[in-house]
């Protein structure tokens, strides 16, 4: 992993990294999340037709990315964790794709 100022711990195979995220960074991310929530709520009031839901989902995805990478420390984890998450999300995307594919042909 990235920086290991403290190379103190050794678990079985891996050097246990001890990445400390400062309080200020969390506060900053929290403010960003609140701002995005504000945008979602105000954007919902504007009539954008079918784009309203697209916008809501895009904002929700950005918020998720912030939570995943910073709050859940994914940014500081090994690459394998990130690959796992992408594979899981891809699997879910395939579910969505085939459900709608199936549905649009059945109707």
């Amino acid at each position: 992993m990235t920086n290991s100022e403290q190379h103190t711990e050794h678990s079985e195979h891996h050097t246990e990294h001890k990445h400390i995220v400062e309080y200020g960074k969390y506060l900053f991310i929290w403010l960003g999340l609140l701002a995005l929530t504000g945008i979602t709520v105000s954007a919902a009031g504007i009539n954008l037709g079918n784009w309203t839901i697209v916008l809501a989902l895009v904002i929700a995805s950005v918020k998720s990315l912030l939570v995943l990478s910073i709050f859940m420390h994914l940014k500081f984890e090994d690459k394998v964790f990130k690959i796992f998450v992408w594979v899981a999300m891809l699997t879910f995307a395939i579910f969505i794709f085939f459900t709608f594919l199936d549905y649009s042909f059945i109707r």
Binding site: T40, V41, A44, A56, L57, I59, A60
Partner: peptide, 10 residues
């Protein structure tokens, strides 16, 4: 984060 816009903000 997903439940809120999908249920409350339509």
């Amino acid at each position: 984060i997903f439940l809120f816009p999908l249920f409350y903000l339509i």
